[in-house]
Design a protein around this nucleic acid. Structure first.
Lengths: 165, 165
DNA sequence: CGGCATCCTTAGGGATACTG
DNA sequence: CAGTATCCCTAAGGATGCCG
């Protein structure tokens, strides 16, 4: 067992025998909404401030039909909300804004962002996301509820646990 | 501007005018390897301890051709390494093990795992990943290099920064 | 401006069968 | 056991055009 693997609770049966291996997996369920490239890109633009149809299509560099499909799916899945609004003197527009559910994907997107910087761009960093009030770069850090930074190799998978509160 | 959006460095031009908006984006580049559901599932199983072809196909619940395609792509992309090995008295087998590059996706997978638990399963938690030495649940927490836990709304996007070290 | 309808091409992925 | 080959179906996504 390598140090990068997650330890399995010794009380668990071998994984091959698990029923509903994907139905019970939160990663698999998350992929139900997030399995396409364009979904990630639309969410990226939502975090970067896009709110209108055109902005999503243009900034994510996807076609309008794809933007329409993604915005609809993400809205139906509850990650975005569609708000009609009207600026004074303008006609009614729609804006798409992140819900709490959508906004909670920030750590996922940030983790992906950082991974790409480290392993695709290497030292040729092109962009950065920082803590506005102190200026230091941010990352998604594996941390336990007791505040410990947890190295890979100290992770253990459990089923139906009593959550540590 | 909502609290869930990432602030843009005021010195930056409007995003619509950026050239190579995707070429320079680490998220987009990461999606080059990770845009399919099966790629996430194969990596999930690698973290859960799978090393052999059969294990990946069976535990991820994907067909053999798909498993073969994903293992090949992930190996070529440097996330997995294929090692021939031989147990005493057995014939030669291949095992696929996470490289440092692949293992570094753990925060991403963990963030997705936690998101699914919170928003798909809600309170009906089915599984948990914990800090083995203290028992507390772990999560991918947005943290800056100075150790601050950074709330959404305090994030700022910069281009070509001098990294805070 | 903010979409949707249509058409087309490519990619993802299952089933089955076969091979070293 | 560890794949590959073939076939087929569906999903992703671009291009174009239309429409309120």
């Amino acid at each position: 067992m390598s140090a990068s693997q997650i330890q399995m609770d010794p009380a668990l049966p071998p994984r091959e025998s698990w029923a509903d291996i994907n139905d019970d997996c939160p990663i698999f369920q998350s992929l139900g909404v997030l399995s396409t490239r364009s979904a990630f890109l639309v969410l990226r633009e939502a975090f970067y401030g896009a709110t209108r149809f055109d902005q999503f299509a243009q900034r994510a560099d996807i076609s309008e039909p794809v933007a329409a499909a993604r915005l609809k799916e993400l809205t139906e899945a509850g990650l975005l909300e569609k708000h009609p609004y009207r600026e004074p003197g303008q006609r009614t527009r729609n804006e798409y804004v992140l819900t709490d559910k959508g906004a909670d994907l920030l750590p996922t997107l940030l983790a992906l962002f950082r991974w790409g910087e480290r392993w695709v761009f290497g030292d040729g960093i092109r962009a950065d996301i920082a803590h506005a009030s102190c200026g230091a770069s941010v990352d998604a850090v594996v941390t336990c509820e007791h505040g410990h930074r947890v190295p890979p190799g100290e992770l253990r998978f459990r089923r139906n646990p009593a959550r540590a509160s």
